[in-house]
């Protein structure tokens, strides 16, 4: 068992190393680090040359790769091209903000999906079931960015009509941040719209999945046995059926996380939230390759770690792998 874990970790590290190469050479191949700067007439030729020397841009690509790796390990990804700011502090802050957003959005989605999916499965063919089915289809068909804009329009119109600032449409916190409870309320007001926008497709996906799972389970023999034993329908649904239907949901969530993360790029841009999505967008717009590569590394690491954890958990659960 331990051997399996160690094996897996080593394999992941190897893939990570391969990823660094792919990222570095891939991005370098298609992007000129100095592209934007060369077009900027404010920068003199000597400044440019100094930059080239400092970043070793005259050296062969492989050497640059070496320097980049060194920067990654020691100097925390070094500095960006345009303003020579250190990359890591901003990137790590962005990471925390996005994790906050994604975790909250997914928790919200799962909660909603359990509610919807379980009820729809229990009361199959009811109005509720049909209604939520149509809802999920719409959820699959809505462009997230459009939905986010609509939410903003509604919020703004609400404010214009009532004068009450129920939610905010941009930023992470207000400028004059209140203390204590007020801070959390304020943060919630800022986060609620992005969370709703981000979770729409997740809710649609998870609720359909749970509904299908519930339907399968609810007609199975062991649930029938539970009912025959005289347990109330509620206990049967919640305790027996749900538990078995819910575990495979973890797989679906894992797979969906990648898409959700991609969605943050759009949502954060629209709601001006300082997270990984916005960071990526800015780095790409300025064609600054060092922040880009750093971002890709962080993202790839997260994806690999997630993969690793799921593999290990499955290895623990699946008796076939236990020799």
């Amino acid at each position: 068992m331990l051997r399996l874990i160690v094996n897996r970790v080593f394999f992941s590290l190897f893939v990570l190393l391969a990823a660094t190469a792919v990222i570095f050479f891939g991005v370098s191949a298609i992007g000129d680090p100095l592209g934007e700067l060369r077009n900027d007439s404010n920068i003199s030729a000597e400044s440019l040359q100094r930059l080239i020397d400092r970043k070793h841009l005259d050296d062969p690509l492989v050497v640059q790769y070496g320097y980049w790796l060194k920067d990654m390990a020691t100097a925390q990804f070094g500095t960006d091209m345009k303003f020579d700011r250190p990359i890591w502090p901003e990137l790590s802050r962005a990471l925390l903000n996005t994790v906050q957003l994604v975790v909250l959005a997914e928790l919200f989605a799962i909660a909603m999906a359990i509610g919807i999916g379980v009820l729809a499965g229990r009361f199959q063919y009811s109005i509720f079931d049909y209604g939520t089915t149509i809802g999920s289809f719409i959820g699959y068909s809505i462009p997230i960015f459009w939905f986010a804009l609509i939410l903003q329009i509604v919020a703004v119109n609400f404010y214009q009509v009532t004068g009450i600032r129920a939610v905010y449409i941009s930023g992470l916190s207000s400028v004059d941040v209140p203390q204590g409870w007020g801070f959390y309320v304020d943060r919630a007001q800022h986060l609620i719209l992005p969370i709703i926008a981000l979770s729409v497709t997740s809710i649609a996906t998870y609720s359909r999945y749970l509904r299908a799972s519930m339907l399968e389970v609810i007609n199975s023999d062991y649930v029938r046995t539970a009912r025959a034993k005289g347990l109330s329908e509620r206990v049967v649904t919640l305790r027996h059926a749900l538990r078995n239907a819910a575990l495979p949901l973890a797989t679906v969530v894992g797979v969906n996380l990648g898409t959700v993360f991609g969605g943050t790029i759009i949502i954060e841009t629209i709601f001006s939230m300082p997270g990984m999505g916005l960071y990526f967008f800015n780095a790409l717009t300025t064609r600054d390759i060092y922040p880009l590569m750093a971002w890709l590394m962080v993202t790839a690491t997260m994806a690999l770690t997630l993969n690793l954890i799921t593999d290990i958990v499955y290895g623990l659960l699946d008796p076939r792998l236990r020799a």
Binding site: R3, L4, N7, R8, F11, D311, G315, R320, L321, R322, A323
Partner: peptide, 8 residues
């Protein structure tokens, strides 16, 4: 090898 274990 199945994954990284070796069943008999």
């Amino acid at each position: 090898r199945h994954g990284f274990a070796t069943p008999p």
